[in-house]
Design a binder for these strands. Structure first.
Length: 426
DNA sequence: TCTGGGGTCCTAGGACCC
DNA sequence: TCTGGGGTCCTAGGACCC
């Protein structure tokens, strides 16, 4: 059996742990640059605040109902996420937890006797809440997809389920799948949901009863066939045991205001390159390719969100590297190539690909892999920055004032990661 | 005025190899 | 007149996830 444990309104819950005065007030958290609403408390959902909707459109409901609004505070959420995952590992065993996202984890429960599953699921919920202050929903079923559906029901019918739902026998699964619409299934997005409805398939139960060959032909090949198996309770999406190394690393951001100057664009790209290189070193890899993109403001208002198309360019590096100083140069050269004077840019990003383990970098005849001094320098920089939880040491090309930075006007304090922002209880 | 930032997997088709 | 039969690797694009 598999379980999925999912934090309820995660970002909002994190804010509330340190703000008891918000426990009965509606709360929302905004995306980077204070653009969209990405987390809503139950109270906020009830008064009609839409998920992923633009903040400015919801402002009138928010003000009318005295909703507490926060910019996203990733220091806080990252730290709380670690605490939740640690609690799950303590309960289910380290090797049985697969962290799926910042607020979700799959658990392998094959070691729990069938008759104790319910009790164990309840205990999971209770322990996480007691240890971290974050409330969670738990879904248990034979496959990941069914567990996701169980979790979906647990959340949707909170009063009835108490946020814990098990779909562990045929009867439970049939009843559940009959009430679930195809667009609510994990792995069925908007495009397939529309197609399915056009074919006359509206419930998860109907989809479950389609032949695998049909799904193979019509729903993205093997992925479709796998989905049908999962819905029938045959586990086909395996548990990932360890943290997998990423195959591609990206750092991209919207600007706080349109950027027109080449030097500012370069500061941003240098900053993003440093971040991406840091992520690269954390997974002990080096990159062979770097690409840079910039997004101008659209000329007219016909394009979606008033963006123009992204303009990008990439470069192969002479040899794979994870050293920030070897990456910033090529990145800035790419900016020179694609920048157009007179245009205003809204967004930019850096992507690193062609990743290889950093202990087996192949040099070439004309270019030797960089010396060890670079490695020592980078790990010293990483150590300082990590221990300070900030970019205390950085490259000059990243700029000092950074007035292109994203808006984060409503961010709460970083209570759990900064000494000088500790919560004071009086 | 104002709409985020990451990722994954799969397939098809083209270039190239012997 | 008449021109094979395998492969591999890479990229773009589509679909999906939170």
């Amino acid at each position: 059996m598999k379980a999925i444990v999912d934090c309820n309104s995660f970002y909002c819950s994190c804010e509330r742990v340190f703000r008891p005065d918000l426990w009965n007030r509606p709360v929302v958290v905004l995306s980077n640059n204070d653009g969209c609403i990405v987390s809503r408390s139950d109270e906020a959902k009830r008064i009609g605040v839409k998920m992923a909707g633009p903040y400015f459109q919801a402002k009138h409901i928010i003000e009318k109902n005295d909703v507490a609004v926060f910019s996203s505070n990733y220091h806080l959420y990252g730290d709380m996420s670690m605490r939740v995952m640690d609690a799950l590992r303590a309960m289910a065993g380290k090797e049985n937890v697969e962290v799926y996202s910042v607020d979700e984890a799959f658990l392998d429960l094959d070691h729990i006797p069938f008759e104790h599953l319910e009790e164990f699921a309840q205990e999971l919920k209770q322990v996480v809440e007691q240890w971290t202050g974050i409330s969670v929903s738990v879904g248990v079923a034979p496959s990941k997809t069914l567990a996701k559906i169980a979790n979906h029901i647990a959340k949707k019918e909170k009063e009835k389920t108490g946020c814990v739902t098990l779909l562990i026998n045929d009867e439970q699964q049939r009843t559940a799948l009959q009430q679930i619409r195809v667009n609510e299934i994990w792995g069925v997005g908007g495009a397939y949901a529309d197609k399915l409805v056009n074919w006359g398939i509206t419930s998860a139960w109907e989809l479950r009863n389609m032949p695998e060959e049909w799904a193979q032909a019509n729903m993205g090949g093997v992925a479709g066939a796998r989905l049908i198996k999962e819905l029938r309770g045959q586990p086909s999406i395996i548990m990932k045991k360890e943290l997998e190394v990423k195959k591609r690393i990206a750092t991209t951001r919207m600007f706080g205001r349109p950027v027109t100057e080449l030097c500012e664009l370069k500061e941003a790209i240098a900053t993003y390159t440093s971040r991406a290189a840091e992520k690269l070193r954390r997974q002990h890899c080096a990159a062979k390719t770097i690409s840079v993109f910039i997004v101008p403001r659209g000329d007219d208002h016909s394009t979606s969100f008033h963006h123009g198309p992204a303009i990008s360019n990439c470069a192969s590096l002479p040899s794979a590297t994870s050293f920030t100083n070897e990456l910033i140069g090529p990145a800035l050269k790419l900016v020179d190539d694609i920048f157009e004077r007179g245009k205003a840019y809204k967004k930019a990003g850096v992507m690193l690909s062609g990743l290889v383990p950093d202990d087996s970098i192949q040099g070439n005849f004309f270019c030797f892999p960089a010396k060890h001094t670079n490695r020592f320098l980078m790990s010293a920089v990483d150590n300082v920055n990590f221990s300070m939880r900030d970019d205390v040491v950085k490259f000059c090309s990243s700029g000092i004032s950074k007035n292109w930075k994203m808006r984060q006007e409503l961010r709460s304090k970083r209570h759990s990661t900064r000494w000088n922002e500790l919560k004071v209880v009086s």
